[in-house]
């Protein structure tokens, strides 16, 4: 007896409705597969491109302890990219194919990494705000409907939370240092606050795929819900740190039991998404150069593996 597509779709829908995971061998709608590949690949690319803004400071970290923390963090991000590419490969694609799409600009990565990092305080701010925003986005994904993605996210979220603590601890330490260091922290927070809010994506009204992704259990909260959660979480942390956040409209709303806050500059957001951010070209060029420079090494590894097989 053959199973018809409507029956498979019904089974798929029931699995999602029960809150169970879809596994790679299970039948899934083509659009679900395509959406997942796009989302996981974009996430993997973000981890890899995200190595650069902070990686730039490894050589200049001002203490050996900070150098070790930073190098380990950037290395973790490479590991995250690796797990996510593996999760994506279970959907019938390959790391190579995905890398080509990143390098040709066909697939995107998080726009936050197109902002420059001119100060060592940015290492702390990225840990606190950028890894922090990533955690808000990603914790719900630990329960995402696709098994390999959800499992990768559990592992990744644990490490992201270390990164966030380490970033915050760097800023806390700098705030106890010299006046100059305190000014560096404030200046860095001023630069990263709005781009961090943009990490949750466009407002719900301008996010057409959200509804379908939520129905599939690929997404668990809307962009605006997560952004609100992030703001509410971050404001007391900023106070404890002793920095201000650059938003005159930011205030507690006791009726809503949440913070009101201003609107990010969505024109800037779309400009950066579409390639006009301060570092888009530089980030891709860096990645492309590493890829091209390593081609002969990857070829050698393939040739040597073949040789060993023949023996």
């Amino acid at each position: 007896m053959t199973v018809t597509e409507p029956q498979l779709a019904e089974h798929f829908g029931a699995t999602i409705a029960r809150g169970d995971r879809i596994e790679p061998r299970d039948w899934m709608p083509e659009a679900y597969r395509r959406t997942l590949i796009r989302q996981i690949a974009q996430h993997a690319h973000s981890e890899i491109i995200g190595m650069q803004p902070e990686g730039d400071w490894i050589s200049r970290a001002p203490s050996l302890r900070r150098k070790a923390i930073l190098l380990a963090k950037v290395q973790d991000e490479a590991g995250h990219g690796l797990y996510l590419y593996s999760a994506c490969e279970t959907l019938g694609t390959s790391r190579r194919e995905l890398t080509d799409k990143l390098l040709s600009g066909k697939q995107k990565y998080s726009s936050i990494f197109n902002y420059p990092t001119p100060s060592y305080a940015d290492v702390g701010t990225i840990g606190w705000l950028v890894d922090g925003a990533a955690i808000c986005n990603q914790v719900p994904l630990c329960r995402t409907s696709f098994g390999p993605y959800g499992r990768a996210m559990i592992r990744i979220c644990k490490e992201e939370s270390f990164h966030q603590r380490q970033g915050y601890e760097l800023l806390m330490t700098m705030m106890r240092g010299t006046d100059e260091q305190r000014a560096m922290v404030q200046e860095s927070v001023d630069r990263f606050w709005w781009p961090a809010l943009m990490m949750f994506g466009p407002p719900d009204g301008a996010s057409p795929n959200t509804e379908q992704s939520m129905a599939w259990g690929i997404k668990r909260n809307t962009n605006d819900e997560l952004r609100q959660k992030f703001v509410d979480m971050t404001v007391p942390q900023a106070r404890a740190l002793g920095v201000t956040l650059p938003d005159p409209q930011l205030r507690w709303n006791s009726e809503r039991q949440a913070h009101d806050f201003g609107e990010p500059d969505w024109d800037e957001f779309w400009a950066v998404v579409n390639g006009a951010g301060p570092c888009n070209a530089e980030r891709l060029a860096h990645r492309r150069k590493a890829h091209d420079d390593g081609a002969w090494v990857r070829e050698a590894a393939v040739a040597f593996a073949r040789l060993e097989e023949a023996l």
């Binding site: 990686g55 150098k67 290395q75 150069k289 990857r298």
Partner: peptide, 14 residues
Amino acid sequence: SEWCSRAPDLEEDI
């Protein structure tokens, strides 16, 4: 550490 984000593949980077 200068190789970080520049290695021939992710495994070597790590």
